[in-house]
Design a protein around this nucleic acid. Structure first.
Length: 471
RNA sequence: GGCGCCGUACCCAAGCGGUAAGGGAGAGGUCUGCAAAACCUUCAUGCACCGGUUCGAAUCCGGUCGGCGCCUCCA
């Protein structure tokens, strides 16, 4: 039984068959770095990380490319509007390059704390303008473009399959129902490949091109960079569900028009994180960042666990109540594995029993069924609670499963080291409480316990003695 | 207006034709000086509603109601 993925192209479940045996080439749309990523954005990167880990678990060697969009996305209207980078720069008094650097760093810091594996190749749009120009020239040579009002447009009527993935009916497309149509366009759904005319003056990011000084349109970077690093045809392209209709539809048109080949075999799209019944967006006033969660005392991995509790193709309902549930579940999971470590003295069983093998198969069938993480977590918990499985085997399975879940279960914090970190005052209190308990002075011991709780230390008296843990 | 998706317990959420996974919360119990933790037990004759197909439907079909998204930059 192999890996099955839901392909947006054709809207059906398909067995994953890579172009090159044993290798998976993946392109994922990355961040636009004019602001912080919010946790809704981050959900998509967690989904892509799970895809990576499942492919690795299934034995594929991965080449994963992610772009960083540091130019070219506009704030409003179809093909006008102010460049978001420029707007952000103007508002904060920094240069566009500073803005890009700052938010790129912030993004990768978030990614790292969520234990997301970094793609093999991360590429910035501004470093690849030459590649984009080459691609536009190719499209021009093949007759897919026209120049109007100073800008280079892609003519969608020249590309027969336009809108195939999005299930767009070209005859019934209603452009302009919500926005003003750019009068330079022959077809309202044509899109810009290269701008030389912007209605905003003093554009800071400009490059020379055969069509004049300007900047690239906002779909061309993904086509240019993916083909540069992964070839004209590759296996998987993923991104947020909102990209299906416009961004990915246009990318397909320009890429396949240029190469004359099928560009991508499998399209995977992650659903939205919703909050109070609507998608997370700054304009809706429900914009939460990972920093906000950290300030509230959550571990980034609490959010990762939360995301794993839902399927990537379903909307996930965010609330702090649910996040609390995820935090508790994650901490319990970590504690259980820690306990297994202690019980098995860290020795994993190298051989699995029939029962253990069954759990492994169950887990695999979950993740191979279009990355069904909720199913995989359910198997994980059932395995941990199985009273007929020995600790070493449970530990071994846990560490295997965590290759996919990425909850850092194998990073066992040495409790002795933690004790070293405790300052003397706390250690003295713990000792003092032990003395009090021995002499049956329970009022004293209880007051010390509450004092420690104020300091963030929780005490538990087990049959094997008193243990403590940081809250 | 066009198109796509969804509605499962107090909360989150799997299941997608064979008789309701998992987590969190809640309840009871064992243990404990008391707690906490751990462990055990318990928690939807029911899957928005109404019809239909079927030996059998949360799962398929039709309708109704409710919600979300895309068609504008957007994860």
């Amino acid at each position: 039984m192999g890996l099955k993925l839901f392909n947006t192209m054709g809207r059906e479940m398909q067995e994953f068959v890579p172009i090159n045996k044993g290798e998976a080439f993946v392109y994922a749309c990355g961040p636009t770095v004019y602001n912080y990523a919010h946790i809704g954005n981050l959900r998509t990167y967690i989904f892509e990380d799970i895809l990576r880990r499942v492919l690795e678990f299934s034995g594929y060697k991965i080449k994963h490319v992610m772009n960083v969009t540091d130019v070219g996305h506009l704030t409003d209207d179809a093909d006008s509007g102010e460049d978001k980078m420029e707007k952000s720069a103007r508002e904060t008094g920094r240069t566009v390059w500073d803005i890009a650097k700052f938010y790129t760093d912030a993004f990768f810091s978030d990614i790292e704390s969520l234990n997301i594996e970094k793609p093999e190749i991360v590429c910035r749009a501004t470093d690849h303008v030459g590649d984009m120009i080459d691609l536009i020239k190719k499209l021009e040579d093949k007759g897919y473009t026209y120049v109007s009002g100073g800008n280079v447009y892609f003519s969608i009527d020249k590309f027969a399959d336009y809108g195939k993935m999005a299930l767009l009916d070209r005859q019934n497309l209603q452009a302009g129902s919500r926005i003003e149509v750019d009068s330079n366009k022959r077809n309202p759904h044509d899109f810009v490949l290269w701008f030389t005319k912007s209605k905003f003056e003093n554009h800071a990011m400009l490059w020379d091109s055969p069509w004049g000084k300007g900047y690239p349109g906002w779909h061309i970077e993904c086509s240019a960079m993916s083909m540069k690093y992964l070839g004209e045809s590759f296996d998987i392209h993923c991104g947020g569900i909102d990209h299906i209709n416009v961004h990915h539809t246009n990318e397909i048109a320009q890429s396949e028009a240029a190469s004359g080949k099928k560009w991508v075999n499998y399209w995977l799209h992650g659903e939205f994180l919703v909050m109070n019944k609507s998608k997370m967006a700054k304009s809706a006033g429900n914009f939460i960042t990972l920093s906000t969660l950290k300030e509230k005392g959550y571990d980034p991995l609490d959010y990762r666990y939360f995301c794993l509790s839902g399927h990537y193709r379903s909307q996930l309902q965010f609330s702090f109540e649910s996040l609390d549930a995820a935090r508790t579940a994650r901490v319990n999971l970590v504690d259980r594995v820690k306990a297994l470590n202690a019980e098995a003295l860290g020795a994993v069983s190298d051989k699995l029993s029939d029962k253990g093998t069954l759990y492994l198969e169950d887990f695999k069938s979950g993740i191979e069924d279009d990355l069904n993480c909720p199913k995989a977590l359910a198997v994980f918990w059932t395995m941990l609670k199985d009273q007929n499985l020995e600790a070493g085997e449970k530990l071994s399975l846990s560490l295997m499963f965590d290759k996919v879940t990425g909850l850092e279960l194998s990073v066992k914090k040495d409790e002795k080291e933690e004790i070293e970190e405790l300052d003397d005052n706390i250690r003295r209190l713990i000792d003092e409480r032990e003395e009090a308990r021995k002499s049956k002075d329970f009022a004293r011991s209880d007051s010390i316990r509450s004092e420690l709780k104020m300091l963030g230390i929780e005490i538990k008296d087990t049959p094997d003695g008193t243990v403590w843990k940081k809250l």
